[in-house]
Design a protein around this nucleic acid. Structure first.
Lengths: 254, 254
DNA sequence: CGTTAATTTGATCATCTTCAACATGAGTGG
DNA sequence: CCACTCATGTTGAAGATGATCAAATTAACG
């Protein structure tokens, strides 16, 4: 493993071999990461295949489109965006990834078609596919676990297709805020108050809108007393009303 | 949706046991389906887990959202659409599926979140997940094969997200036609002349447009001499020009 | 051959984009 | 500590793309 010089050097020198070894058992993500249902025995085997990676600075890439896909990554801290790029330089953010989530499932014929960019200083665990495959032939539940995560990913993207194809700008932003609130909440953070790790521009891109539209919507939501937004700090004041804004403006038809 | 018994009954009675037995080896889809890289020996084991299903009439469902996910399906003939439905009855088509393709990857916690509807009289092979999991612990390449298909599915949906978020109506329809041409072509059908199995309404829904818009665009494409469309019969007259319409109208910026 | 569903065409309208200007904040060096 | 600069975000006005409503055509099918 290749550690760029910088600050980690200090850490590396101070930390002894033992403490560098990962412990999935004690990891705060263990309930969210793959080895949820593994026995102690299997967990030990799982830990063996997990690699560490140097922290990824803001703006740095976990991997690039076009690179060979060789591992999955569990996000320990920070956050990422997945970006699809067309030949003519057009970019589309197809997902944001929070701590506790797995990334690396995109790709055709073992070549990534997304670039995954860190939105913050982020740390990840690397799970080499080769080892993961080998291990999941031995460990009963692991293979199913991976399928489950991939299936969820597919379903999430399908929900996003619906969002982009059918909903108004207002509904999209409301959904986005609720989704963030939910995902952070289920990971032990506050559901009502959180930081947006991504820029307005990123949000707009993700939601298929112009940045100006997002800005205007945020203002509108504030004026309605639904949320309070200060820079990137979001406070949800009226969850019920926010949920109402997800439904189309005319109210639920049928 | 309610799946009446109907016509299948006749067929079931006529077919004898022998002819029901599947042969993946001789199947015309074998190059496209899962067992691409399997040895004869492994192929035999693969055949054992494959079930037959009665043909699904037009409008019938392969499975419904909410049902337990228990199998993958290889499409032998016909075609399907995957539909996501919201609480308030809104529907979004998230994919069309052609012969040779696999479906059944959607779902959260082993519950489907799509309904897969036949657009024609369709036949499928059923691959029970339980058996598939067991077999892929024994057969080296199989597990990877499944991952590959799922990864491709994820990537395709990401491409669709870009389409819906960033492209004009014209670009969407052009992409759609090219995609159909490509998919059918790679399965041995004509790239220049094919039938649309889905209605204008379905196309529009899939592309996040109004049916009227699709109709107008088709007319416009015809007037430009790009395609000829007669009812559901499509002939691509000028592939290059069609590809041009994918790029944004103003030409490629930067 | 009539009845119904699917598609096409026309006209108007709304939402969201684009362009432009401005405000605010963070970071930097004097 | 302040002034400056660059990045980010906000606001306003005009314009465009595509939706919706309405009506006419055409195809499908019993």
């Amino acid at each position: 493993m290749n550690f760029p010089a910088q600050e980690q050097v200090n850490e590396m020198n101070l930390i002894n071999i033992e403490s560098v070894k990962l412990s999935c058992k004690n990891c705060s993500l263990s309930e969210l990461c793959l080895p949820r249902s593994l026995s102690d025995d299997d967990l030990a085997r799982f830990e063996e295949i997990v690699d560490t990676r140097p922290p990824i600075p803001k703006g740095g890439a976990l991997y690039h489109a076009g690179e060979a896909s060789q591992a999955l990554y569990a996000i320990k801290s920070g956050a990422f965006k997945s970006v699809v790029t067309t030949e003519d330089g057009e970019e589309q953010i197809v997902g944001f990834h929070m701590p506790g989530e797995l990334v690396g499932f995109d790709g055709v014929e073992s070549v990534h078609n997304c670039t995954v960019v860190s939105l913050d200083r982020s740390t990840v665990c690397e799970l080499p596919l080769r080892d993961l495959e080998a291990l999941s032939r031995k460990v009963e539940g692991l293979q199913r676990e991976v399928y489950t995560v991939m299936r969820r990913e597919i379903s999430q993207e399908q929900a996003m297709l619906l969002l982009l194809a059918r909903r108004t700008a207002e509904s999209r932003l409301a959904s986005f805020l609720l989704s963030l609130s939910h995902r952070l909440g289920s990971r032990g953070f506050s559901r009502n108050e959180f930081n947006l790790v991504m820029s307005r521009h990123d949000i707009a891109n993700y939601l298929g809108l112009a940045a100006e539209t997002v800005s205007r919507l945020i203002t509108r939501f504030q004026e309605s007393g639904i949320v309070e937004v200060n820079r990137r700090r979001v406070t949800i004041l009226d969850l019920a009303m926010l949920k109402e804004r997800v439904g189309q403006p005319g109210g639920t038809k049928v």
